[in-house]
Amino acid sequence: MKWGKYTPYILLIPTLVIIILFIYWPAVSSFMLSFYKVSPFGDIKIFVGFDNFLNLFKSKTYLNAIKVTVIYILVTVFSVIFLGYLIALLLDNKVFGVKFYRTLIFTPYAISFTIAGALWTFMLNPVAGHINYFLNRFFGISANWLTSQPFALISVMVTSIWKMLPFSIIFYLAGLQSIPEEVIESSIIDGANNWQRIWKIKFPILSPTTFYLIIMEITHAMFDSFGIIDIMTRGGPVESTTTMIYRLYLDSFYFQKTGEAAAQSVILFIIMCFITFFYFKFGEKSVHYQ
């Protein structure tokens, strides 16, 4: 078979058609819609220019959603990275039954976000849940975990951390196991103690993993948090758990405000562009690759 000049392009056509239909075209129409006010059934469109964006940044509701998202991302990503690394260190030890522990610890990863939300909703039920039962039993305290501030946000964050933790443990564990024995041995000979080995030697060696995980966890927290929030709190109380993605869902699918929702998706798009940009720009330079 002879390869003509255009053969590669012909072979690319099927992929291109699908990408254009399902990714580029919707993206372009989102951009266009963000400049309109759209009636619920989409039959009436009023051009409003940048009003949708301006109104978003003037609206307390949206500013609050940004605040909640920032808190949510900072807390969950930091905890997932930090705890993930520590647990991976423990699992890296050769103790009896370590494979069993590993399997147990990885299970949340196999569960979907929605099911994680449902599980924790059961446990956090104010009158029949396990968590209040034990708290009340041992400390004589209890809380309305999902319906009062600030507990609702805390509950949602804990659930997300629980759910996302295995992902970082897997990566850290793989990284730890691939650190050459010589490095560790020479550090012992040089007299570094355990603490120094963990933070001054192993952690820097794993910096590519850390960097990759931070990016991944940010995207997780931005977009996948939706399932957990929808199941556990529906964004309440007083919007204290309404993140940007949940706000987008509400405006688009509950309130039929297509224009405003499109503007929000453009904002999320821009944020993701920044994250990707930083990933490529600094990811290569400042991270130590072995």
């Binding site: 619920p40 007083v238 509950y254 309130f255």
Partner: peptide, 22 residues
């Protein structure tokens, strides 16, 4: 009214704000 669903969310939020003592 055409905005009932969102009106309900607002009333529920108002309720939450009252319960939280704000």
């Amino acid at each position: 009214i055409g905005v009932f669903q969102e009106a309900r969310e607002i009333i529920e939020n108002a309720y939450d704000k009252m319960v939280a003592g704000q």
